[in-house]
Design a protein around this nucleic acid. Sequence first.
DNA 1: TTTATAATTAGATGAATATCTAAATAAATA
DNA 2: TATTTATTTAGATATTCATCTAATTATAAA
Lengths: 185, 185
Amino acid sequence: MSETEAIKLFKCLADRSRLQILKSLVKEDMYVERLAGRLDLTPATISFHLKKLADAGAVTSYRSQYYTMYSLKRDVFLSRILDIICEESDEAALQARREAEYRQRVIDSFFEYGRLKSIPAQRKKERIILEEIAKSFQPGMVYTEREVNIIIADFHDDFCTIRRDMIGEGIMQRENGKYWLAKEK
Amino acid sequence: MSETEAIKLFKCLADRSRLQILKSLVKEDMYVERLAGRLDLTPATISFHLKKLADAGAVTSYRSQYYTMYSLKRDVFLSRILDIICEESDEAALQARREAEYRQRVIDSFFEYGRLKSIPAQRKKERIILEEIAKSFQPGMVYTEREVNIIIADFHDDFCTIRRDMIGEGIMQRENGKYWLAKEK
DNA sequence: TTTATAATTAGATGAATATCTAAATAAATA
DNA sequence: TATTTATTTAGATATTCATCTAATTATAAA
């Protein structure tokens, strides 16, 4: 679903009358006049809304005797909002997103107000946290140990452990007491 | 989530700028000016949108150094549209709606083009039909038997049966050959 | 405390749109 | 084919709302 289509769909859902129509159609198919009676609106108004809903792919219609019956397109309503927003159905992008989501959850749970609440015990999680902290260092720039400590201390009092683990994980490199960010592999 | 809240949320999602903001926040938390740069909009406009998003429960914010960081409320985005639409509606209203729907189905199936196809055998259904026909009489007005017959004959040829049953059900009252609608109990 | 910067608010404007009435169209029955 | 009934379209109106500029407030650093 393209962004334009998503907006069209959400616009449809963002109106009380149309929501009422959809709620009615969840239970059974209905025709214009009946909906007009239930919602206390003019058939013209109902017709106007149904056209929008159809245009957004939310409903379809078929004729039955005198009436044009309108019917919910159920699959549309089973999708998650997140999936609609991030329409990259490309598998790679999807994976990247899941990965990013996971990282964000880890970061959210260990940081509070910009500070690290505790150092994760799991290596995978600590790695994520260390990479997050590494964003405070500039690529290419060389730091003294004292400078490194000061920057890390902004996040957590135990800057020694964090500094050591950053070296251990290969996120930073050290030589002759000087520190710098490792190049991305 | 109430209907009003659902509409508020969908309204938020129904705008290109806000969708872009959300797409940015899916990846990482951001602050106003950075978003303004990415979307090529004024900080004032971004602020306006973020306020709406926050009000709809789609994002939260926290301060970090100079900035107010905005963050996606992920759980909201993991819900399905159908769940959001069907969620509210207290039980009483739901029952009332079911009742109204049932009445409508009965009416739909026994009437055709404004005329009664047959008189329902089930007492419960006949009552609904009689009440529907009763809508053609004005409350407080007094009718002769002839006038009553003419009005009922519009719906069905056997106006005698219908007239008698309306008295029997207490929907109309009679005295000295004059008829009128019974008061609602 | 002063200063710099980020964020919000207020007011203005133009565009979109939900709803109605009245008229036109489409479809089913007689 | 003529007539009835359901649905859609057209035109009008009032409201909502996205966006900007300018001014104000809030916060961090010096």
